[in-house]
Design a protein around this nucleic acid. Sequence first.
DNA 1: ACAAAAGTGTTAGATCTACACCCATGT
DNA 2: ACATGGGTGTAGATCTAACACTTTTGT
Lengths: 234, 234
Amino acid sequence: MKLINNTDIYTVQQNILVAVDCIIFGFDSKKLKLLLFKRKVAPSKGLWSLIGAFIKDDQSVDEGAKQILFETTGLKDIYLEQLKTYGNVHRDIAGRVISIAYYSLISVREFELESVEKYDAHWFDLDELPNLIFDHGEMVADAIKQLKTKAKHQPIGFNLLPKYFTIPELQILYESIYQQELDARNFRKKILSLDILTKTNKKDKSGSKKGAFLYTFNKEKFDALIAEGLNFEI
Amino acid sequence: MKLINNTDIYTVQQNILVAVDCIIFGFDSKKLKLLLFKRKVAPSKGLWSLIGAFIKDDQSVDEGAKQILFETTGLKDIYLEQLKTYGNVHRDIAGRVISIAYYSLISVREFELESVEKYDAHWFDLDELPNLIFDHGEMVADAIKQLKTKAKHQPIGFNLLPKYFTIPELQILYESIYQQELDARNFRKKILSLDILTKTNKKDKSGSKKGAFLYTFNKEKFDALIAEGLNFEI
DNA sequence: ACAAAAGTGTTAGATCTACACCCATGT
DNA sequence: ACATGGGTGTAGATCTAACACTTTTGT
């Protein structure tokens, strides 16, 4: 099939398509997960892949990523960040396509199940991922690495939790991200010393009989600290 | 002008061009600098910009970046890393072009002056940058930020120095990157304690009468340490 | 002889790490 | 009453940050 590529001034011959792919991380209070999709179009139809789409001419790459994420998860205004662009000549077996990968962090609890069915999506544990098409496995590996690095210095972990969460939940999340166990006393001390959590007087008793106090992330306080030049680290 | 965009299977209408732009950092033993070019084509001809090029159909995006870098600096096998992709609809005033930005680190001393003249290039101090076309200013700001972050945990600084360098030179480099003064004794202690530098018995007397010993970066040792799980930080 | 940059140790304070028991509550 | 996870403090080790003088040598 032939397509028309129109530029205003540049006299360039180029046959490259531009797509986005989204690595969607989720956390369900127990494990860190990845949302994968059974591919609905050729080539590689029926295999597991990240969700992606071609960019429209009148939409920015960021907008393209936002849109595909909204369509498949029903979620808006969620954490979404560009990861890396994948541009090998034969990365897509059906044509010359470069893909700008994004990763997103959501709370599994706030995610619409309806979308899962409609798009043939499935949450996979990070240590039980199936084979993925093209270079999507590489994208996922890069995203996991990036998440580990980023979580240390920016409070992005909170995007994976519901608005109210407990300290033990937060600890399990960080243990999942870093893939190592943390000392409960030291973790609590460190996270509370940052003074970016607001304690409520409610308890979540789903995890224990005693129940754990619910906290919420105080973004205003955090931003103020960053503005003062805080060298944040968890 | 109309162009043909051919894909094998995908039935997509898309009129987007794909380019790369390179942010080239250099260090001359005194200051951190940026290599900028007087643009030779419309639009915005004659204004300062990063060097860039359109990707060819049969070349990966990484290869495209490598090629433009080689053509303009004469340098091969130098540090080159993808920064970010810029994809706003109207970022280029002459058409829909997305650009994958790369940044590169070189030693100004090892750089061919010949290329500078041929391509109308100029080294600018980081604090005296001219206005740049399109979103190139944003690219540069992002690259500086990335360089700061990355230099802390990976030994990329050495790419900005010639093979043999002195500790005071290295310190000035890190001071330029972090934009803050460092204590000479503490810096020397820390960098030497990493045990990744090999001392030679030669001195560089260009900086002082006494002269400073020349060192060289020991990549083998560094890689071995990383393999052991070293949590590197400068 | 002197100017100018290179090179060298110590100490106080801050931070990190390891570790064990009591508390609250549902069953 | 007991099982289960929640919540708390301390001490030793390590790391960080601040600080001043001597060495070398070209002019």
